[in-house]
Amino acid sequence: MRQNIEVDALARVEGEGALYIRLKDGEINDIQVNIYEPPRFFEGFLQGRYYQEVPDITARICGICPVAYQMSSVQALEAALNITISPEVRALRRLLYCAEYIESHALHIYMLQAPDLLGHDSALSLAKVAPDVVRQALRLKKIGNSLLRVVGGRSVLPWITQTFRWTMSLSP
């Protein structure tokens, strides 16, 4: 007996994807994951931009985990330009990253993953049977977002604060 499981659009994932599973005699025969997220060519159009703009632009690679992309681009630039940052700035960056962990993990665990494990469609339907748990999750998420706002300026696509910009002028 041959059976196919086809999910054209996966729900509650960060981004977009499809999943195709082919079964044969109850055994998995073939699995295909299709990430059809359109290409956006960041590496291409970053060329020719001013270095100060890079973290703002790479943030837009993913709105759910922008700090990861900002942090990596900043580190790449600093390595290339031989910039050393002060321990204070490093600590602030870490704080910003932790803020994103808190927000993003709360989102992931409670709103994206838990409904599957508990047989629900979403955190919203989960809220009908376990409102306190969902409220607590939202509170946790909010704490992460508040921290993101304090350190980074805003919760989604943060890092607009001065703390993370290079104020020195680079002489060749």
Partner: peptide, 29 residues
């Protein structure tokens, strides 16, 4: 980048009210 959809989910204080006021009929995220 999903950031705008996330902004909706970031309505932590209002999300449950919002979900009560409308029928969320299609919102894969």
């Amino acid at each position: 980048c999903d950031g705008c959809q996330l902004s909706i989910l970031n309505l932590e204080d209002e999300l449950l009210d919002l979900a009560g006021a409308v029928e969320i009929a299609f919102f894969l995220e």
